[in-house]
């Protein structure tokens, strides 16, 4: 009796093992595909956020900024990129000139005619320098135009098959000087 070849008893467990191994593999493939898509849109979201933050830092006139602490879409609505959504919201917080202090040096008077010939400093100014603290309003005589504005951007992204999640989110925080 010939015994060459494979028997049904061999093939059946082999096929069962293959099936058992392939089920999680297909799951992995599927989740990998979703994750790749999320990672791609994360890169796009980072680039969009950088561009938008640059605009809010240097291009947009602060008079056009939203009210203090009010949330606003940077584009009026989420960005749609290849079917994925990127949501960028911004809030600004103005530091009031009347309550924001600045520090600056104040020099003690010294007789520069004898000790500082030709503008050359002859004293050790470390002991002749005091620190003064004043509000911005006192320094600039302007209480209306806030000189420092905090800008916070919240960036989120999702694919059509996923939902909004705190995992797919980051913040950009900066401070703009209104010259």
């Amino acid at each position: 009796m010939k015994k060459n070849g494979t028997t049904l008893l061999e093939v059946l467990p082999a096929v069962a093992m293959l099936a058992l191994a392939m089920i999680p593999m297909f799951g992995l493939m599927s989740s990998s595909n979703t994750a790749s898509r999320i990672q791609k849109i994360e890169g796009v979201a980072a680039n969009l956020a950088k561009e938008e933050m640059n605009k809010w830092m240097y291009v947009i006139d602060p008079t056009s900024f939203p009210d203090d602490g009010v949330e606003e879409y940077v584009n009026g609505a989420p960005f749609i990129v290849e079917g994925n959504e990127v949501e960028i919201k911004v809030r600004v917080y103005r530091h009031q000139n009347t309550s924001t202090n600045v520090k600056y040096p104040d020099f003690v008077w010294h007789d520069f005619r004898t000790t500082c010939p030709d503008s050359t400093e002859g004293n050790n100014l470390d002991s002749k320098t005091n620190q003064v603290t004043r509000t911005i309003e006192e320094v600039t005589r302007d209480a209306t135009r806030p000189r420092l504005i905090d800008i916070v951007m919240q960036v989120r992204w999702k694919t059509p098959t996923t939902s909004w999640s705190d995992v797919n989110k980051f913040f950009l925080v900066s401070r703009r000087g209104w010259m």
């Binding site: 933050m53 420092l148 000087g177």
Partner: peptide, 24 residues
């Protein structure tokens, strides 16, 4: 993203210094 976050904080520092130079 980490780079962007740190970079915009650095820009905030520069802005702060520029404001001080402007008002003082």
């Amino acid at each position: 993203v980490n780079f962007l976050q740190a970079n915009f904080l650095t820009q905030a520092a520069v802005q702060h210094a520029l404001v001080k130079c402007r008002i003082l």
